[in-house]
Nucleic acid binder design. Structure first.
Lengths: 126, 126
DNA sequence: CCGAATCCACAACGATACTG
DNA sequence: CAGTATCGTTGTGGATTCGG
């Protein structure tokens, strides 16, 4: 469970260890850069610079930060080749590929409801 | 498409209007509070205060901000009843329910790989 | 080529107070 | 009860620089 389902007064102690871990993971992974990185890697093996080129608008810093985070959580694997110049490649691990299904779903959802959402925005902004 | 798939030098003009809209939606929706709100509402009809209680750790401000954003994008519907005290209820719209499938997938993923991730973290932190 | 560290501008966020 | 506004603090994220 990621959201609370009980109804009493709430405090931190209400979260079990597993719940708080789940929330932590959620906070890490449920962000746009992480999703875009996972989507970009997909089944490929990509270098840092390739990822940087593929993800429009991501900064060097954001890319490294999110790659570290994803590596720490075991979603991507980082392979370093001690060549000159150095070569670093990223691939999705099994958990990473599993999550990719979810991210793909969201991409499809975005495409499907694009017009719908645009219309809703115009209505709201008026 | 949400990520770029071409390989030339990149600039903002490379994004078509639909792409930039897709990215905007992605930036809005792919964040942890939005996901937790969607997950909490689910098939229910919840009041502001009920959402506040159900989502551990969300502030009044974050909840209103994200609810406005989701309403603007047409994912939640807001119903105001002019009673005393006022009563405001939130439900998912059709696009919102469609996205919920994705969010559910992520919740399930989190549960499934919880141990896996925890182990990966310990390895990484060492 | 990749990544870490520094600096700093500005956005995010929480707390608080006020309105209908 | 729900929402807006303001304020002060924290944190995010970009630009840059240096190092392996």
């Amino acid at each position: 469970m990621v959201t609370k389902q009980v109804d009493g007064p709430l405090n931190d102690a209400d979260l079990t260890r597993a719940d708080s871990l789940a929330r932590e993971i959620f906070s890490d992974v449920a962000n746009k850069w992480a999703f875009l990185i996972i989507e970009s890697i997909g089944e490929h093996t990509l270098r840092f610079s390739e990822l940087r080129n593929e993800i429009e608008g991501i900064s060097h810093k954001m890319l490294t930060q999110n790659l570290r985070m994803l590596e720490r959580n075991g979603l991507v694997e980082r392979s370093v080749y001690a060549t000159v110049p150095p070569r670093v490649e990223y691939t999705l691990t099994e958990p990473g590929r599993a999550l990719r299904a979810t991210v793909d779903g969201m991409c499809a959802w975005t495409q499907q409801y694009l017009g719908h959402i645009e219309a809703a925005r115009h209505r709201f902004d008026a």
